[in-house]
Amino acid sequence: MSDAWIYGEHGGEATSRLLAELGFSPHRVAANGTLRPVAGESRAPALAVILASGLEQPSCAELCARLAADDDLGEVPVLVALASGALAAGVGVAEGHELLVEPFSAAELQARIARARRAVNGIDHDDVVRVGSLEMNLATYQVAIDGKPVDFTYMEYELLKFLVTHPKRVFSREALLNRVWGYDYYGGARTVDVHVRRVRAKLGSEHASRIKTVRSVGYRWEGT
């Protein structure tokens, strides 16, 4: 289940409930200036919600800046929730990737999450992603080239999905291991290279070269 981290106190309970309804597992982050619900957590959540009403230390702008600057959290879609009265004051209106005005329904939250994700990744996670003749259905785990199914193993699929949904950014092997595998594996850091080779072999000549090897750094997906 995807994690959602919630910053701020105002309306925290209600927001947690709505996120749970949408299938997320909500975690409240303590209001002591920390960025993570658990110290030392390296895994990024699927999204972050900042409840900006009554938020003072750190301010909403400060939180957003620190999230953006964090190695692991820089690409997390951020939603900022404001009380309607705060809109006129303009505080927090320009922060995050998407704005929510309290009170909001589950349906609105879902739509805003999709917009925030699109703002960050260029795609919605329930979308079908197309790159030339390559089609990835992120809801059904199916990949096709020219309409013909290509059979990946789960980890090959997850690696391809991660690269395709984070185009044009270079990821180190360590970052890929953390974010795609996230657990111990016999291959160690070499696992990434081995899986990239397998994915390239299955993608075939037209698409294999989209996974660029960035010498002594890592890998990058070239979408176009």
């Binding site: 030392g40 957590e41 390296s42 895994r43 789960y154 980890m155 997850e158 291991l177 953390n178 974010r179 795609v180 595998w181 996230g182 657990y183 111990d184 594996y185 160690g188």
Partner: peptide, 15 residues
């Protein structure tokens, strides 16, 4: 490999 990684099964058995 670190315990930190071991603790978080992003793509565990359920996936």
């Amino acid at each position: 490999m670190t315990d930190r990684r071991r603790a978080h099964t992003v793509n565990g058995v359920t996936g």
